[in-house]
Every structure is written in C-alpha cells, then in structure tokens.
C-alpha cells in the first residue's frame, strides 16, 4: 500500500561501493608489501588503532572544541530545536545534541560515532544568512550524515589511509636500515634500487588511498544531499541553501578560515575551495554544479505523476 516516491540511485551506490572496494584493495596491497619488506606489522596496526580509537570516540568533542561550538538547550535556541525535533520525528531517528558555534562563516556539521552520540552544530553565520526553510534543508542534510553513520564510515576509511601512510613510513625506515645492511653485506647497489622502488610504490599507494578517501567523502556528500532533500520533500530548497552558503564562503578571505580546514570533511560546504581540476580530485565535497544537478534531477522526478 505504501511506497516510496524515490528510486534508489544505483549509479551513486555502485561508485561508492567500488571506491570502498578499491580502498580495501590498496590497503591489502600496502600491508602485503610491508610484510614482504619485513616491516613490523603489529606496531603499524597498534599505532593506527590508537588514531582510530581517538578519532572514533572523541571526534564529536574534538570537532566541537575546534569550532568553539557550544551545546544549546531548547530554551536557548527554541526555533533551532523545534526544526530538529520535527525532522527527527519525520525521519524516525533519535534527536542529536544541538550546538551553535560563534562564527560568521556560514556552515554546519554533524559529528559523533553513532546516532545516539551525534552532535549537530551550526554557526551563527548560517543562522543569520538562511531562511528557516533553507536552514531546515541544511539540517536535513546533516541529519542524513548521522543516519548514514558517515563519521564512522569516514573514520574507518581514513584509518585505512593512515595505515597506508604508516606502512610507507615503515618502508622508508626499511630502506634506510636495510639499505645500510645491504651495502655492508653485499656491497652492491641493485638492492638499494629495489628498495627505493618499494618506497616509491608505497608513496604511490598512500596518494591513491588519500584520493580514494576524498572520493568517498564526495559520494557520501551526494548521498546526504539526496536523503536530506527527500526528507524535506523539497530538493530546490536545499539547492538554494547550497548556493547561498557556498557563494558567500567564496567571498570571505581564506585567512580567517584556515583554522577550520582540518574539519572540512564534516562540513556542509568546505571552507576552502580550489577552482582547479586537480583540486577536485582532493576535494572533500563535490563541486556545487554536481550537487545542484543531482537536486534538480530529484526535483524533476517528484514532478512526475505517480
């Protein structure tokens, strides 16, 4: 009797899953190479696990602290809470904590490892610039991140990246130590060349894993745009909010924004934007045109009579 108005975007799902697969593959290759080169894999995993645990359990506090976000009660921000209340009731998900950051940069982010531990933070800049409907659209996008467990997914994905990075380090040490041994034992240079090649290989792996994590981040953004727009039933409003926020961000001098660069991955729109195509490969967020195009398609599909 009941059915959804929306088709699953199989293309997006396929791209996302293949990115994850490639990321896992790169990780497997890196670890295999490290074992082959005789690195202490236990140490690598232990160091990376510490990173993972810290990021996993403290990401909400770290992000809030770095943005100077403050948890607000329903009494202090009644309107903001009312919007979140209603969106959570619509989506049937637990209500996250709501925080406000005193910053004129218009932005919003969601963080926290699970739905229950989630924190939704908006800046005073976004509150001032957006209409209530647009703010609701932005919050729906952020709630979708929470529903998709994007913090957990991206933490694990970057964990693999960190792991690959550490393996690269290990191989560097392997070249230095092993290279010395090679000279004294055999006195020949071919071994050094082989190990330098291994180092180059590890570096390439690191770059690839980094790019894959960024690609994954962009796909997660598109997925959150989609789910958010479906939740509020009005893709156009989210598109308007995106145009307003990214448009204004581009005009603010980058010097003031540098402090928030570390948390770009969790933002609604990244604070620093590069216009060139190499920048696109490393960007945490898809280009505005790509996001707008997706929302326009979604809006068009809603216009069709069932």
């Amino acid at each position: 009797m009941s059915r959804s108005k929306f088709q699953v975007d199989h293309g997006l799902t396929a791209r996302m899953v293949s990115t994850m697969f490639l990321l896992g593959l790169v990780y497997a290759v890196a670890v295999t190479a490290a074992i082959f080169a005789g690195a202490q894999i236990e140490l690598v995993v232990a160091i990376a696990a510490i990173f993972l645990i810290v990021q996993f359990f403290f990401s909400d506090k770290i992000a809030l602290w770095s943005m100077k976000g403050e948890i607000v009660t329903p009494e202090r921000a009644p309107q903001l809470h009312a919007i979140v209340d209603r969106l959570c009731a619509l989506a049937n998900m637990p209500k996250p904590k709501v925080a406000v950051a005193q910053s004129d940069m218009p932005n919003a982010f969601a963080t926290g490892r699970s739905q229950k531990a989630a924190v939704l933070c908006v800046t005073t800049g976004i509150l001032r610039r957006l209409s209530p409907e647009e703010l609701e659209a932005v919050l729906a996008h952020e709630l979708s991140h929470v529903a998709h467990r994007d913090v957990a997914v991206m933490t694990i994905a970057s964990f693999l990246g960190i792991l690959a990075g550490l393996v690269t380090r290990m191989l560097t040490w392997g070249v230095l130590l092993g290279g010395g041994r090679g000279r004294s034992n055999q006195g020949g240079s071919p071994l050094i060349i082989v190990e330098l090649a291994a180092l180059a290989f590890a570096a390439v792996i690191y770059v690839i894993s980094f790019m894959l994590v960024r690609a994954l981040s962009r796909y997660r953004e598109l997925a959150a745009d989609r789910s958010g727009a479906i939740l509020i039933g009005q893709p156009r409003v989210l598109a308007n909010a995106l145009v307003k926020v990214t448009g204004e961000i581009g005009r603010i001098p980058t010097r003031d924004l540098r402090t928030s660069q570390a948390f770009n991955a969790f933002f609604f729109a990244p604070a620093l934007t590069n216009g060139n195509s190499i920048g696109n490969l490393f960007a945490t967020h898809p280009k505005l045109e790509v996001r707008l195009e997706q929302l326009a398609k979604l809006e068009a599909s809603m216009g069709r009579t069932a």
């Binding site: 009941s2 975007d9 899953v17 989506a91 529903a147 998709h148 959150a224 789910s227």
Partner: peptide
C-alpha cells in the same frame, strides 16, 4: 539499519 544501507549511504524514508 542494515549494514548495506550504511555502506551505500542511503536511508529508507520512515513509513507511517
């Protein structure tokens, strides 16, 4: 939520 939905980054709209 199913693990597949988490991996694919999608939510099934809650039905009434």
């Amino acid at each position: 939520m199913k693990i597949l939905d988490i991996l694919a980054g999608r939510t099934k709209p809650a039905q009434a």
